[in-house]
């Protein structure tokens, strides 16, 4: 299992290749990458992602441990950035591996649902008109109920 919290950009392709090549027993790997998107009305200059350094890696690792136990994952990778990110930059990625694809897909979805609402990150959108904190969405909280 690997959890990385960093401000530096990373190459999700290279990270995925490294993850795949480290799997000795898995039959399936699933990955997800989250990308900074512009607002529907446009005008996003950049996003600022704040986090709680003393808590972040531990909170993510606890979520990873749950996913591994629940879906029998062989391995999991989470990379999450903080700091200033521009439109199109990769914010984060998860990768999961398992014997079969259903567990790898479900493990990745579980990780994403929990990272959204239980990992201590906060996004702020900065535009020419000012800055505003991204509000948590009810649908993201509700997504946890299915697990």
């Amino acid at each position: 299992m690997s959890v990385r919290v960093q401000s530096d950009p990373f190459d999700p392709g290279a990270a995925l290749n490294g993850f795949v090549s480290a799997q000795a027993n898995a039959g399936a790997v699933v990955s997800f990458s989250g990308i900074v998107r512009d607002r529907p009305e446009g005008g996003l200059q950049h996003m600022e992602i704040e986090h709680y350094p003393a808590m972040t890696a531990g909170a993510i690792s606890a979520i990873v441990d749950q996913a591994v136990a629940r879906f029998g994952l062989d391995d999991a990778l989470v990379i999450h950035r903080h700091g200033i990110l521009k439109v199109g930059e990769v914010i984060m990625m998860v990768a999961t591996s398992a014997r079969h694809r259903a567990d790898a897909f479900q493990g990745a979805e579980f990780l994403m649902d929990y990272l959204k609402s239980r990992a201590p990150f906060w996004k702020k959108e900065v535009t020419g008109d000012g800055a505003s904190w991204v509000a948590a969405r009810d649908v993201d909280e509700a997504a946890l109920d299915r697990w």
Partner: peptide, 12 residues
């Protein structure tokens, strides 16, 4: 030792 207050998280 430490108490933290913050809004609902918006990771991912």
């Amino acid at each position: 030792r430490e108490v933290a207050f913050f809004p609902p998280m918006t990771g991912g």
